[in-house]
Design a protein around this nucleic acid. Structure first.
Lengths: 215, 215
DNA sequence: TAGTACATAACAAGCGTTGGGTATGTACGC
DNA sequence: GCGTACATACCCAACGCTTGTTATGTACTA
């Protein structure tokens, strides 16, 4: 339950930190990094900056924790696409599910995407944040590379590319689609995002022989 | 000539504004948007904030002008890829050239990419800036859609997709590749960016019969 | 009584912006 | 050719405000 608990079991330190992080997310989606101030976060929380400094030593620490938590929450959340593909989906279905999970197909995931895109500026200017991001994307890539390798073994993906190239290319495609969808949501509605992704994946199928024959 | 003229022909208003914009670019590449202050720009220029306010009514105006000028400069710059493909290249070659021009293949274009990615946060929080960006990307997409349509007519691209879908997908792919290259430059060196793009375009070829893709 | 969980208030630093001051031009009547 | 008049191009100093951070006070809990 994500109810807006007034006070979360006084003394529950970790829950309070999570609540603060959620307030950070809200501020980021609404005002971007330029609008992320301690007072804005506190206001979003109905509290004062004194609360924030009680739980976090600095603004940077607060931000890193919020981003970490967002990433974890994304990884741990119920995944409609992954489950639709079956909990132990392998190969192409798993790859497709992983890619779909990145796209801003719902308002909530759009808010999350918005935060990640926004965080790129801060990250590129801060070595530590950049390292966090690089690690995150690398991890996602290697996970997808495993799916791609399995898909190749199953004959679902063309084998004239390495799984790493397939994963890197697919992640590129999806990340770029996220950006475009954020800037032109009416031009890239969920259905089109899905169809573009499926078209992309269809082109990665192994060469079919004789499907349309001509000399 | 891009010499660092000490004073650009006193009275040359526009040249000064361009110089200021260049200083903005430098600050953005080095410190990101969080570090973009009038004092930083002035310091980069060896001047004071008085100079800036003399040429621009506000910081926002200064930023918009700098981004506009960066976009124009990109569009007008000598294009090695476009020229290699021939000045009047059409179809797939033109599309490939346009896509290559977006990738951060050189340190200079990497700096430009860095600025654009950084600007996404500010843009997503500012309707006017977001409009500028959306217009820019839309324009680029429609240009590429024309190339794609020509390529289809020439039999260079598969025809079971609309030119708009092909352009949108290609731009997504390239934008995402830009992001990944910025965060993991050692993993996405220029050669790999190029080969990933070429692999992507190869998959968009019309279905070939019987010729397993040579690789 | 001790400690946690805050609110409150103040701090110095830095921000965008403003306005006054000062050179350095250009225009023009003489 | 020269002095006056005015505009341009800046520097400099200061304004009011916001920022992250710190210190202090206070209520509640155990």
């Amino acid at each position: 339950m994500y109810a807006v608990a007034m006070t979360p079991a006084r003394g529950d330190h970790e829950a309070r930190r999570a609540e603060v992080s959620a307030a950070v997310w809200r501020v980021l989606t609404e005002r971007g990094f330029a609008g992320l101030t301690l007072r804005a976060v506190a206001g979003e929380l109905g509290a004062t900056t004194g609360l924030l400094t009680h739980y976090f030593p600095s603004k940077r620490a607060l931000l890193r924790y919020a981003l970490d938590l967002l990433d974890e929450a994304h990884a741990a959340r119920p995944r409609p696409h992954a489950e639709a593909a079956g909990p132990d989906a392998e190969g192409l279905a798993a790859l497709r599910a992983a890619l779909l999970d990145i796209l801003p197909l719902t308002p909530e995931s759009a808010a999350g995407s918005r935060i990640w895109v926004s965080s790129w500026d801060a990250a590129l200017a801060d070595a530590e944040l950049a390292g966090d991001h690089a690690a995150r994307y690398r991890r996602a890539r290697s996970r997808m590379a495993e799916f791609a390798a399995a898909a190749q073994r199953r004959g679902e993906l063309r084998t004239d590319r390495t799984p790493q190239d397939l994963a890197g290319a697919a992640q590129s495609f999806v990340l770029g689609l996220v950006v475009q969808a954020l800037f032109a949501p009416e031009e890239f509605p969920p259905e089109r995002q899905r169809s573009l992704l499926d078209a992309y994946l269809a082109d990665l199928a192994p060469d079919r022989v004789g499907s349309a024959s001509s000399a």
